[in-house]
Amino acid sequence: TASTSDQPIQWRFAIEETIGSVQHQYAMKFKELVEERSNGEIEVTIYPYGTLGTSDQITELVDMEVVQFAMASPGHLGKLIPEVQVFLLHFLFSDDDEINNQVLNKDPRLQKTFAELYARKRLKLLSIFSEGWQVWTTKDPIHRPEDFEGVKMRVMTSPLLIAAYNAYGASPTPLPYSEVYSALQLNMIDGQENPVFAIQEMNFYEVTDWMIFARHAPFITTAVTNREFFDSLPAERQELVTGVVADLNDYILKVQREFNQERLSLIRKNKPDLEIITELTPEEREAFRQASQPVRDRFIRMTGEDGRKLLEELKQTIKEYEDQQQN
């Protein structure tokens, strides 16, 4: 068989996070399944964060076919494909992970819409998954938009995120990730948002007093490959990739939940007096949802008709799956 040929083919997979992250877990399982199912004809090398560059650079590397696979999260990819910034909008998704997983990966219509968006940039979308909910850590409790008045929140440099926190009355402060801890400690900023695993890893909970699960947005990332590379593969290899990716969707949801659960227990153990708001009441969520409406208009202004249709389609699909769940 072909597996006796001397050198295995090299595929390179660049991720945006460090070893031990949800993305790394995804890439490792991808490597394991691809190598196993290709009978060792393919070898996958994983490049964790910091080895090949920033998120922006990694996407360019996929495009130049320096790496074949990569993670591309909307915060960065939004600069190339403005429509994917839809994932940054607040209170859009269901507060049930499982429903979001189905919407993002199993709905054929949405799959087609997204595939076309990515194809414009010579990318092939493999999967969309959540790495857990964005969680606020702050110095004071937050229940309503008014509670954000004057709060200096650190956000990624994305116009929609800045607009969102402006809409709540906060003053969004862009800051490099590595300065967030010190800035919280010195009260240069009052809060930040990140998924639980990042909050634990960077010890942000040590320098804030409240942790608020508003479930305002999942921290979403996407796995991509170079479209020309993918199309040039023989049919069996293409099926190999799509098969592995399909199996990974449920796997990564499980991993993500376990990861964030474990890290949350660790945080609780390390700082027992940390105040945690595990959820907001439906009224409180509604107040935030209302306050964040202007951000959706902004999104539509930024992305035009395509963006408006996508947003509608996404809202529609989420509602359909939520209704199904109810019945």
């Binding site: 920033t54 650079q57 076919e65 320096v66 490099p176």
Partner: peptide
């Protein structure tokens, strides 16, 4: 040889870009 040296220019620009 499959990797384009254009990546070196990408990294040169990236190297001087960090805000700090």
């Amino acid at each position: 040889p499959d990797v384009t040296p254009a990546v070196l220019v990408q990294q040169m620009i990236g190297g001087i870009k960090p805000a700090a």
